[in-house]
C-alpha cells in the first residue's frame, strides 16, 4: 500500500506545484491546500501504514498487546493539519485584502504595487 500511496503523493505534489505556479491568486491558494494535504500524506506514508491498530492502549494495560501504528508521525500530522488551516485562513484573507487594494488577482500585475 505504501508504494501505491507513493505514486498518489507524487501526483498530489505535481498538482500542487502546478497550481502554485499559476498567475491567478486563487489558484495559488488551491495549490497551497493540495500541498499541505500532500505533505501530511507524505509523512503518513513514509512512517509506514498499519491497518486496524490505532495507537491506543487498552484500558488498564501498561503496554500494547501487539504492534500498533506509530503515534509520533500522527502527532506531527495533527499539528500540521491545524497549522495548515491557520495558514490557509491567513493567506485567504491576505489575498482578499490584496484584491481589494490592487483590484486584480493576477500575480504578475501585483509585482509593481510594492512601490
Amino acid at each position: 500500500m505504501e508504494s501505491l500511496m507513493a505514486y498518489v503523493v507524487g501526483i498530489l505534489f505535481a498538482a500542487a506545484i502546478y497550481m502554485m505556479l499559476r498567475r491567478s491568486i486563487v489558484k495559488l491558494v488551491i495549490g497551497l491546500m493540495i500541498l499541505s494535504n500532500a505533505a501530511n500524506l507524505l509523512i503518513f506514508v513514509v512512517s509506514g501504514m498499519t491497518r486496524g491498530a490505532p495507537p491506543l492502549l487498552p484500558a488498564g494495560a501498561e503496554a500494547p498487546a501487539s504492534a500498533i501504528a506509530d503515534p509520533l508521525p500522527q502527532a506531527l500530522i495533527l499539528t500540521a493539519i491545524v497549522i495548515a488551516f491557520g495558514v490557509l485562513a491567513f493567506a485567504v484573507v491576505l489575498i482578499r485584502r490584496a484584491y481589494e487594494v490592487v483590484g486584480t488577482d493576477d500575480l504578475d500585475q501585483m509585482k509593481d504595487t510594492d512601490t
Binding site: P54, L56, A59, T79, V82
Partner: peptide
C-alpha cells in the same frame, strides 16, 4: 487522554 479526542478535536 485515553481515547481519540483531545483539545484540537474538541476545539474544532
Amino acid at each position: 487522554h485515553d481515547e481519540p479526542g483531545g483539545g484540537f478535536i474538541g476545539g474544532l
